[in-house]
Structures are given as structure tokens and as C-alpha cells.
Amino acid sequence: KKEGHWDCSICLVRNEPTVSRCIACQNTKS
């Protein structure tokens, strides 16, 4: 897992550190 990346708590997609919403389901970063 790269530094700063985060996994969506709903759909588990891994997102870039620069985005505050999931690219797949638009869930906000927790």
C-alpha cells in the first residue's frame, strides 16, 4: 500500500491521497 492511499470503507476501492471522495462510489474519505 502506497503512502497516503486510502481504501473506501463501503466499496473497498483504493483511492489516491489527493482525492477526498471515492472514485467508484463517491463515498467521502473517513
Rank of each mutant, 00 (worst) to 15 (best):
29 K>Y: 00
25 C>G: 01
23 I>A: 15
26 Q>R: 14
24 A>L: 10
20 S>Q: 12
20 S>W: 03
19 V>T: 12
23 I>G: 11
14 R>F: 03
26 Q>N: 03
21 R>C: 10
24 A>P: 05
30 S>I: 02
21 R>W: 00
28 T>D: 15
24 A>I: 09
17 P>V: 02
14 R>M: 08
1 K>H: 07
14 R>H: 07
24 A>R: 07
22 C>D: 03
30 S>L: 05
17 P>R: 02
27 N>H: 12
29 K>P: 14
14 R>G: 10
24 A>S: 03
13 V>E: 07
23 I>E: 13
25 C>N: 01
26 Q>P: 04
23 I>D: 05
15 N>A: 00
3 E>S: 15
29 K>F: 11
16 E>Y: 03
17 P>H: 08
14 R>N: 09
27 N>S: 14
25 C>R: 01
21 R>K: 13
5 H>T: 15
15 N>F: 00
24 A>D: 11
11 C>I: 00
27 N>F: 06
27 N>D: 13
18 T>D: 14
18 T>V: 02
30 S>W: 01
7 D>C: 09
18 T>G: 05
27 N>G: 08
22 C>M: 02
27 N>Q: 01
1 K>T: 15
18 T>K: 09
11 C>E: 12
13 V>T: 14
27 N>P: 10
20 S>G: 06
22 C>V: 03
13 V>H: 14
22 C>Y: 00
25 C>W: 00
25 C>F: 00
28 T>S: 09
22 C>E: 03
17 P>T: 06
2 K>L: 04
14 R>P: 14
19 V>A: 10
30 S>H: 12
18 T>A: 03
25 C>Q: 11
16 E>G: 15
16 E>A: 03
22 C>R: 00
24 A>V: 10
3 E>N: 06
29 K>W: 13
29 K>L: 09
21 R>T: 14
2 K>G: 12
14 R>L: 14
3 E>F: 15
24 A>T: 06
27 N>C: 11
